[in-house]
């Protein structure tokens, strides 16, 4: 699949934002941070900013952005529509949660409920994003059972790194949370490696023979394409990354987005003072870079069944 930058940016950016909101709720419920106006403003501005920037990016990527409101109507059947509904609905509890933190400097009572609902809504939204891809049978590797967990895990990992880094600037964070973030980062990459192993070893779902129905004659090969140039389908679905390059990119992504931030957060757990927010920020930046590469690969490596008509032998 063509790795469109708008979709890569949207899923990574809003994923980190929603993940951060989940961690903020956990911090609030467990009393890990004392709510105060300044830290609240900073952390909610960044988290909601990332979420909103991602949503706007995906909206402006549409052929008709002015019609985007129509996309919330078909939640009965469409995961994209469900994602839209969930994304908009999430703003309500999150704004309440933010109001309590920033204006009333409280995590108690009703504000606590807003925090819980925020976390659930954010998780549901990320889950819907994953399901958009996981529900497409035409791209067989995306239907793998690890796709949605990977989306959730990277949202939690990047969101955790982000929330920790920002809050650590204002208040000392317990080393338990640094360890927790490191553990989630490790878990996300473990899931990703599992996804890669599964897609590398997956049996083909469809073949040029089943696509044309000519398998009873023998092996099917494209003799002549319908046209000498490109078309929309070839542009959108025909992108292919060399296996050699993909293997190298996987390694780079895991080192930059996995090893570096994991070490940073382990160091955060061991250290005190100004080094903690600094290392956490470096860790988040590295993780975000790794996630962008990982997301690029998610699209670039995926093979679409329609390419069977254009010369691929199996997907």
């Amino acid at each position: 699949m063509h790795p469109a930058y708008s979709v890569i940016f949207f899923t990574s950016s809003s994923g980190a934002g929603y993940g951060a909101l989940i961690w903020l709720a956990v911090f609030a419920i467990t009393g890990a941070v004392v709510p105060d106006t300044v830290s609240g403003l900073a952390v909610f501005a960044v988290a909601l900013g990332l979420v909103t920037a991602g949503l706007l990016s995906s909206t402006f990527h549409l052929g008709h952005p002015e019609r985007a409101w129509r996309a919330i109507s078909q939640w009965r059947t469409s995961w994209l529509s469900r994602e839209g509904v969930a994304a908009l609905a999430t703003y309500i509890p999150v704004l309440l949660f933010a109001l309590g933190w920033i204006l009333f400097e409280s995590h108690d009572g009703g504000w606590r409920i807003a925090a819980v609902v925020s976390a659930l809504a954010a998780a549901v939204t990320v889950g819907c994003t994953g399901m958009i891809y996981a529900s497409l049978r035409a791209i067989p590797r995306w239907t793998d059972a690890t796709v949605v967990p990977v989306y959730l895990a990277f949202a939690l990992a990047s969101g955790g790194a982000l929330a920790f880094a920002i809050l650590a600037f204002f208040t000392p964070m317990s080393s338990v949370w640094a360890l927790a973030v490191a553990a989630v980062i490790a878990a996300a990459w473990a899931l990703k490696f599992l996804y890669w192993r599964r897609i590398d070893n997956a049996a083909p779902v469809a073949t040029a023979e089943s696509a044309t129905g000519l398998g009873h004659i023998g092996k099917v090969r494209l003799f002549e394409a319908p046209h000498t140039g490109e078309n929309y389908i070839m542009r959108e679905m025909g992108y292919r990354v060399a296996r050699k390059h993909a293997a190298r990119l996987r390694l780079i992504a895991a080192l930059v987005g996995g090893a570096v931030p994991a070490i940073c957060f382990l160091a955060c757990a061991a250290l005190n003072g100004v080094l903690v927010p600094l290392l956490a920020a470096i860790g988040f930046a590295a993780l975000a870079t790794g996630v962008l590469v990982e997301r690029w690969l998610f699209f670039a490596e995926a093979e679409h069944a329609s390419m069977l008509y254009y010369g691929r032998s199996a997907v």
């Binding site: 052929g63 008709h64 129509r70 994209l80 791209i139």
Partner: peptide
Amino acid sequence: TCIGCKLCSWACPYGAREYDY
């Protein structure tokens, strides 16, 4: 009412839908 999100073309394994840029 089409917003041009292209998801339908991703969902079609037959490559039957074409986007008009």
